[in-house]
Design a protein around this nucleic acid. Structure first.
Lengths: 220, 220
DNA sequence: GTTTGTATAATTGTATACAAACATAATTAA
DNA sequence: TTAATTATGTTTGTATACAATTATACAAAC
């Protein structure tokens, strides 16, 4: 079971999950503000661990560009500006297009079957009007595409983007009554994969992401 | 002055620079083969440091996807397959296009001046037929564009790609007698920036990168 | 000969100790 | 009073010690 307390000297940091993903979440959600100093000892106290794992976590965050460390001075939160978030969406769109292009070319029969299966789940949840499950399967659908692109770097990049976008906003999802619309967009994407039609795939994913952005901030 | 010895139990790892960039280089250049285990103690001995900085370095490498750590089992080299490298080139091309698009829209007067200045240096080094300096200023030219895009994530991504591509190959550069060709391609890019012509810019950078790939493996 | 169990060694995960750099406060001199 | 300086305390960087986990070797059983 996960530990959950206040901690971090009343900064309101949650403590479930591991250090890295938790600190990342706290930065992306703005609990830790840009410019704020991250004291090793404070984080140690908040999470009940020693400095070694904290420092390792700091290196990971630094590598993602979410904190900046100044030698002998410490770690400072960088975070994402609203401009960064805007750019994130655009970069993600561009990369998803590339991802679809490559995935259509490289997808295996087994992967295509999985994609079809994911779509069928979407149909099912649309009928049942289960928004929660729809969001989950939606994520899986897109992750299947990332994997089908058979490019570790692209898959990782898109995964991180997805994660960032997911964590960045409070994520109020306005899918109610729009599940069929979402389903249709995925149908077009799937069809493009079945027909190996790259151009149609690029068009479909672009449209889907643009609509998703209009609908809310979290529907992929 | 930097330390340079054999070390790493005869694996031939070089020791200049810091742990992270050195290990990264050794992985990218293939000195550390994919699947190979990275023992903490061995790395400690090779670089003459304790386990703490080594573990921190491992986290950084893990974050870049160059090693994989299995809990309680250790770190294993992942490295880049030839397919990865191929994909890297394509991803880089796609990102550079996006970078140019955004940079043309967002570049400041000061940044444009710097870009012009960089180009003028290129003209100079072309006249002097100084391939070495040409490569350096070439890198700067492109980095100026990354910065002008005013997107930290994109800039960082492109920087890493550039670094990976640079380190991935032995990098025999065949620019002799082609400096003018390279200069011309950059002229077209610069002109697009001056005229704020996004389409021309995208076309110019695409052509430049395609030609660069034909010319060698390192000219950007 | 192969497999299973156990003991030992090696390695990783974490905590802590110590040294070096830095920040802050007090003190002195102009 | 202000500026410079020293003293003190805090924080980071690194090394090391200890605990937990995993790998290896060897013996016993099948």
């Amino acid at each position: 079971m996960f530990l959950k307390t206040e901690g971090m000297n009343g900064t309101g940091l949650t403590l479930s999950g591991n250090l890295f993903s938790q600190l990342r979440k706290d930065i992306l959600r703005g609990k830790l503000k840009a410019g704020e100093k991250l004291s090793e000892q404070q984080v140690c106290d908040a999470y009940g661990v020693s400095r070694t794992p904290v420092r390792e976590t700091f290196r990971q965050l630094e590598q993602e560009g979410l904190i900046e460390t100044i030698p002998n001075r410490g770690a400072f939160v960088v975070g994402l500006s609203s401009r960064d978030v805007q750019d994130l969406y655009e970069m993600r769109k561009a990369f998803e297009v590339i991802g679809v292009r490559w995935a259509i070319q490289r997808i295996t029969k087994e992967e295509l079957e999985k994609l079809k299966e994911a779509y069928e789940f979407m149909e099912f949840y649309t009928l049942k009007e289960d928004t929660e499950k729809m969001l989950n399967i939606n994520m899986s659908f897109h992750e299947l595409i990332y994997q089908a692109a058979h490019n570790r770097m692209l898959a990782h990049t898109l995964y991180v983007y997805q994660l960032y976008i997911k964590e960045t906003k409070a994520n109020s999802v306005y899918l109610d009554g729009k599940l069929e619309e979402v389903l249709n967009e995925h149908k077009k994407i799937l069809d493009a994969f079945v027909r190996k039609d790259i151009e149609a795939g690029e068009e479909a994913i672009t449209l889907h992401l643009e609509n998703a952005k209009k609908r809310a901030k979290v529907c992929y």
